[in-house]
């Protein structure tokens, strides 16, 4: 079975972001970029499926500018066999990303597609679900455990209040939650070998998808500073304030 794994280039999660002075967006110039942490978990899961003999081939795909090939090389160093880069300089929203991925899925015919549950830049948590809808496939979102058996996959999902297990017919879409696995680090020899692995470049036009934005980003601002609070002198005063002033007890 072929496994397709989608990865996204995002700002490194350790970076403290700055909003541009003109409020048009977040300032990404000269900022360290990395693979989205949930995508790392997705790559790790795909590679583990290959190591278990479930997956025969792991294909990594990304959508984004030329520089996003760094993240594809990272995925290749971690164990993916080959990569597909859908190159575009435009801002690609979840819906357009899902349409592009649906075309890649149509071409590659994978048995399983693994994505992160959300990207830490836009925090949308949409692409996997949208891809499932467009490809007409079932979805196992927020996965903390994935077991493939014959033509089915059992996915244990992190839901509010606990865990839920669903069984999906393959092919299926899975999105990863934090608890699914602990991603490995790329080793130097693997990073060198990854440079020789195949990487196909396509354009949205090749796939026949229009990526123009449907949502206008009118403004980006820093969150409101929290109003300076007060220090209370005793537990009694704290309980009184929470009951009568904040009214949260």
């Amino acid at each position: 079975m072929k496994v397709l794994v989608a990865v996204k280039r995002v700002i490194d999660y350790n970076v403290k972001i700055r909003v541009k002075a003109d409020h048009s967006d977040v300032d990404l110039t000269n900022v360290k970029m990395a693979m989205n942490p949930f995508c790392e978990i997705a790559v790790e899961e795909a590679v583990r499926l290959k190591e278990k003999g479930v997956a025969t081939e792991v294909v990594a795909v990304t959508i984004g500018p030329k520089a996003a090939q760094e993240q594809l090389r990272t995925a290749l160093a971690l164990g993916a066999d080959r990569a597909v880069h859908v190159e575009t300089e435009e801002r690609v929203e979840s819906l357009a990303a899902a349409k592009l991925l649906a075309k890649v899925v149509e071409g590659e015919q994978p048995g399983l597609v693994i994505l992160g549950k959300q990207a830490i830049d836009t925090d949308n948590n949409q692409t996997g679900q949208m891809l499932a809808a467009l490809a007409g496939l079932p979805q196992g979102t927020f996965a903390s455990e994935v077991t493939v058996e014959n033509d089915k996959v059992q996915v244990t999902r992190e839901i509010d209040g606990g865990l839920q297990t669903v069984e999906l017919t393959l092919p299926a879409i899975v999105t990863t939650d934090l608890r699914l696995n602990e991603p490995r680090y790329a080793k130097l020899p693997d990073i060198m070998k990854a440079k020789k692995k195949p990487l196909d470049v396509k354009s949205p036009a090749d796939l026949g998808v229009e990526v123009a934005s449907r949502l206008t980003l009118a403004k980006v601002e820093s969150p409101a500073e929290r109003k300076g609070g007060i220090k209370v002198g005793s537990v009694d005063e704290l309980v009184d304030k929470l009951k009568n002033e904040a009214k949260v007890l």
Binding site: I11, K16, I17, V19, V26, I120, D121, T122, D123, L215, T216, L217, A218, K219, V220, E221, S222, P223
Partner: peptide, 11 residues
């Protein structure tokens, strides 16, 4: 967006 470190207005 960005884990609550920025607030976007979208139309």
């Amino acid at each position: 967006i960005y884990a609550g470190n920025a607030i976007a207005t979208v139309k």
